[in-house]
């Protein structure tokens, strides 16, 4: 599946994911399947979900659907958290790469709605998950299913806030125009892969730095002349020291990798 994605054959990769899901679904139906076995299948299911989402993320990047790719990326990262929590599967390659990919997006602030609810229903038994009567702990696995706390009966909205570390990074302060300069970095990554200059598995990360370049607006003038910037002030009292300017610079690092080695 990863080889298909790496060669941008996304449809083929999705078909392979569907085949794997069907295999896992059949395994769940075994009569002798115990709780531990079902929990292991849950993790494998999430791993297949992750691989499929990984492909969707990169396909959207290449297609320059950056808002979509951001959502797929967050889905993929959430799945990695689940896989890491419940297994020893080595996902370091994906973790490192996708965290670096996250840095290529301009999203830094997120919106969040606070609300008051009456109680949290257990997704497994339907009881109040915080009550002693419910035998489940939120976020834990029980025979291949995760206990989730489902908020019930919204009493009221408490606040809307902007924050840096939300529970869900999908609620972004979005840019209407994905061709705008804030998307330059992810667009550059997209172009690298779409053009075949680098493969998906080659992307390693971003190195942010400052660079000094000649100021394109700078005009050397006689010191007593009005400054080129239009301030009306003498040149030697205004922009005389601005012959060069400091700009943000990003290096995109790539390193050819055997994507097969990313999968244990």
């Amino acid at each position: 599946m990863l080889l298909s994605f790496n060669n941008c054959r996304f449809s083929e990769g999705r078909d392979q994911a569907a085949d794997l899901r069907a295999t896992l679904a059949a395994a769940k139906q075994q009569d002798a399947a115990g709780a531990d076995f079902l929990n292991d299948l849950f993790v494998l299911d999430r791993y297949v979900d992750f691989l499929a989402t990984y492909g969707e993320t990169w396909q959207a990047v290449i297609d320059k659907r950056f808002s979509d790719s951001w959502v797929h990326l967050q889905d993929a990262l959430d799945l990695l958290r689940v896989i890491k929590k419940f297994s020893d599967i080595d996902v370091a390659f994906f973790e490192d790469q996708l965290i670096e990919l996250e840095n290529a997006y301009p999203y830094a602030m997120f919106s969040s709605v606070g609300m008051t609810v009456s109680w949290f229903k257990c997704s497994l038994c339907g009881q109040d998950i915080d009550a002693d009567d419910c035998p489940h702990i939120r976020g834990e696995l029980y025979s291949g299913e995760m206990a989730q706390a489902v908020a019930q009966d919204v009493i009221g909205l408490s606040h809307v806030s902007l924050l840096k570390n939300p529970d869900d990074k999908r609620c972004v302060i979005s840019y209407g125009d994905e061709t705008a300069p804030p998307f330059n970095i992810i667009r550059y990554v997209s172009d690298l892969v779409a053009s075949g200059t680098a493969r998906i598995s080659d992307f390693r990360g971003l190195v942010f730095s400052k660079r000094t370049i000649p100021n394109p607006e700078y005009v050397e003038l006689d010191s007593s002349k009005p400054c080129f910037c239009g301030s009306g002030v003498r040149f030697d009292e205004c922009c005389v020291s601005k012959a060069s300017v400091e700009i943000d610079h990003v290096d995109v690092t790539t390193d050819p990798a055997d994507i097969g080695s990313a999968v244990v």
């Binding site: 709605v113 609300m115 109680w119 009493i155």
Partner: peptide, 9 residues
Amino acid sequence: EGRLIRHSS
């Protein structure tokens, strides 16, 4: 009277 959900991490 309820539980406050903040949606931050």
